[in-house]
Design a protein around this nucleic acid. Structure first.
Lengths: 346, 346
DNA sequence: CTGTTAGCGCTTTCAC
DNA sequence: GTGAAAGCGCTAACAG
């Protein structure tokens, strides 16, 4: 191994540095630095030679030293309440992909529902000197907003329209489309189970829900609008509440797919069937949806696009380029087996 | 704001350094360094005073500078094939928790099924100088193994028994328990849908499956052992194949929950019902299981413990302490609605 | 085209 | 108990 022969530092497990390569190639340290950056300021021949040395010596640049020198770490912080939330995970996957394309990697930080953890998540990312932060889960946004305004680190929130740097889905429009679809199926008593943990988003979807009802001339019944937390349990509770109504809904639009899953559980537990007795519809369109039983009707968010936009926006902010104002993409209706025409219209 | 008054470096957005604090407190830089590390070598009073300054000036230590100086970044790399895989996500969540407790944060890197991405995932983590790597998803292990042996970075694989630094579940034992449970329900024709992507693990679970059959005196029928890839699609395909058998199984044990979900889909598509006609059982016990319809019977892996063991092991390896040989915990049976007594024994 | 030098922000000997 | 100074591995002026 060339590398070993040339290794002039006594220690054995010492990682090879740019200096080692310089010694080996008998050039100065800065020439190596330039050569590795493929700078045209270095003669092509020496450049190749140096790169060859680097390869032979199995050189791996220290991102950390580079970060210290350039004040850019090429890392993005990602703050999630819970990576095990399917939609969040899918978003993070897309963000990682987009980040990789831009030469960035991800530092993941959980913040749970706990203010203390949220603070420590933020501090960790700050100390790690990530170049920017992406928050794919709007349920944690309320906490971060205050912290962010004072810092200079670019932060972008996904699906948090009230924040200036946000991208995501047009929640209201998408929800309206969803509910309109239920109305088209002949449903007249359509309920909404919200997701209080996602304050802003849930309100937007509720707006869309109401707009669709109004457009179809359906009356708005406050008892059909209940709260969930945005998870399976919340959906279950919300649905139970709806089932106690003198006249339960024939269709329910849920804040997200997890909520819908919980709702379906409650419906089946009450001896009713989905979609025969009650149609259920979710939001987000997690990849599991087609494999659920019944397959869950939902409205899909354009995760890949959103992730790309988010990453692009952080990078622009980083370059002090002007960024477009929040872009919110259309949702896409995904009709599946959990919804069916209303068999007993009022 | 005290901090602003004391800020003697011209620039406005300059982050405060240890030097700034030293100037403010009128002590030397090294004293500040010690004080912030709460070293007893600094007089308690000055220590407190310096810490107070740090707080007022909103000082955030640069993990990156510290890393360069100490050669410890306090970050752990996590390589996943797909974070959107529910079990992986849950494991990562637990790892993050355990890492946080040890003062570590996580760098997430996707590697997909693609050798090129796998290599780049590895290189990114190497360049980022993570202190160690945890691979929660054994499906990517085959690729990493070669890379790892030559490096000096501690790497631990979860559920990859053939590797020296591994922790996880006793796959064979857990699978045996699972199949025994099905046998107890009166099933005699029990199938296994494997997960080829998880070569080692799938073989171990298949061993357990066969051991349980043998222990119950049930004959081993090769046609009842089919392949899946370890995802929903694979489960669907595998089940379809089983349904074409002259005498299909009355119960099927699946490599994991996703596979089981796919299998259930195929069963229902064929007009049969779960568990009435065929019982289905998964593995991993993802959190969604109780909310599926029918709720999925599974065998749970002790995710939190495993994550703790994994993190503890990397840290020990890092300290050059001796590590225990692979610890593989027992699985836990989680009987739910997707399995039922066999109604038509042979 | 290449080399010299001064940091980046921190830790850590070594002196006093 | 505190300070001075070297160095971690790299980049980026500034010279030549």
């Amino acid at each position: 191994m060339q590398a070993l022969v040339l290794d002039n530092c006594g220690a054995t497990v010492m990682t090879v540095t740019i200096q080692d390569i310089a010694n080996a190639a008998k050039v100065s340290l800065s020439t190596v630095s330039r050569a590795l950056a493929d700078s045209p300021r270095v003669k092509l021949e020496t450049r190749r030679r140096i790169q060859q040395f680097a390869r032979e010596m199995d050189y791996s640049p220290s991102a950390i030293a580079r970060g210290l020198a350039t004040k850019r770490t090429h890392t993005l912080g990602v703050v999630v309440r819970d990576i095990a939330d399917a939609f969040v995970a899918e978003l993070v996957r897309a963000i990682d992909q987009a980040a990789l394309e831009g030469g960035y990697s991800l530092v993941l930080s959980h913040c749970s529902d706990n203010p203390q953890r949220q603070l420590s998540a933020f501090n960790i990312l700050r100390q790690q000197r990530v170049d920017g932060i992406i928050v794919p889960d709007s349920s944690t946004a309320d906490f971060f907003l205050p912290l962010l305004t004072e810092g200079d680190m670019p932060v972008i929130l996904i699906n948090h329209r009230t924040y200036r740097h946000s991208v995501g889905t047009d929640n209201e429009g998408a929800a309206c489309m969803a509910v309109d679809y239920l109305a088209q199926l002949g449903h007249q008593r359509i309920a909404y189970i919200g997701g209080t943990r996602y304050r802003v988003e849930s309100e937007e979807r509720k707006e869309g829900y109401q707009r669709a009802l109004a457009a179809r001339g359906l009356s708005r019944d406050m008892s059909l609008m209940v709260d969930g937390e945005g998870d399976t349990e919340g959906g279950q509770k919300g649905m139970k509440q709806l089932l106690t109504l003198p006249q339960p809904p024939t269709a329910v639009f849920c804040f997200n797919d997890l909520t819908a899953l919980g709702a379906i559980g409650a419906i089946q537990a009450s001896g009713r069937r989905v979609p025969d007795d009650i149609s259920v519809m979710g939001f987000d369109d997690i990849t599991l949806n087609p494999y659920l039983h019944p397959p869950l009707t939902s409205v899909a968010q354009q995760k890949e696009q959103i992730a790309h936009m988010a990453v692009a926006m952080v990078l622009k902010l980083l370059m002090h380029e002007s960024v477009p104002v929040g872009q919110f993409l259309a949702g896409k209706l995904m009709p599946r087996g959990s919804t069916a025409p209303c068999v007993r219209p009022v």
